[in-house]
């Protein structure tokens, strides 16, 4: 009994030391991770909508794709707009998107965060120019969901990575619909 109690005490001591080290590391790195996340998010928002002001992140309700949105403040009289935080699914896993939308659902700019798509295939979607094909869609013009709805040059550019393209297009289409259906005013 005594032998077992000593062994149990030693094991508990080792586990406690491990937990203590992890907690200490978290205390040191936690603040840095939080600061970096805030800085990165602000940089993305500024890239998408320069010369605009932003509100705090508001949670989105009733959508599996849109996680939340930042209200965007322009000059007085300008149309209402927002930057949505949306998620999709590509070939290599989840896709995180920032979508700058007007109140009528028109997509003004998109930023795809770093993905786990395969190099030489869906990884190309991370290039800012990739999103040009979606700009101006979502309002009067529908979001292109298939290769057939793209120009020949754009279709050739995404061939070989159609799952990634489909994942992004569907996420953008849902984000645009969320805004059109009054999601940001609820």
């Amino acid at each position: 009994m005594n032998k077992h109690a000593v062994a149990a005490g030693k094991i508990a001591g080792i586990c406690f030391a491990g937990v203590l080290l992890v907690v200490l590391t978290h205390l040191v790195t936690g603040a840095a991770i939080e600061r970096r996340d805030e800085r990165d998010t602000y940089r993305i928002l500024k890239d998408l909508a320069p010369d605009k002001g932003f509100g705090v992140l508001k949670p989105a309700e009733g959508s599996d794709t849109v996680l939340g949105y930042y209200p965007v403040w322009g000059k007085p009289g300008e149309a209402e707009s927002c930057i949505l935080v949306a998620r999709g699914r590509g070939y290599g896993g989840p896709l995180s998107l920032f979508v700058y939308c007007k109140a009528d659902g028109e997509i003004l700019a998109v930023r795809l965060l770093e993905t786990r798509e395969y190099p030489g295939m869906g990884k190309a979607a991370e290039a800012p120019a990739y999103m040009n094909k979606f700009k101006g869609t979502g309002g009067a013009k529908p979001v292109p969901l298939t290769l057939g709805s793209l120009s020949r040059a754009d279709a050739e550019a995404v061939s070989g990575a159609t799952i990634t393209f489909g994942g992004i297009a569907r996420a953008l289409e849902r984000a645009s619909s969320f805004v059109k259906n009054g999601g940001i005013r609820k």
Binding site: I14, C15, A17, G18, V19, L21, V22, T25, H26, T29, G30, A32, I33, R36
Partner: peptide, 17 residues
């Protein structure tokens, strides 16, 4: 597992930062 887990968790946190 406890030792490797603690090391992996620390490595993950340092990498995130």
């Amino acid at each position: 597992t406890a030792v490797a887990g603690a090391c992996a968790s620390m490595a993950d946190l340092i990498m995130q930062a």
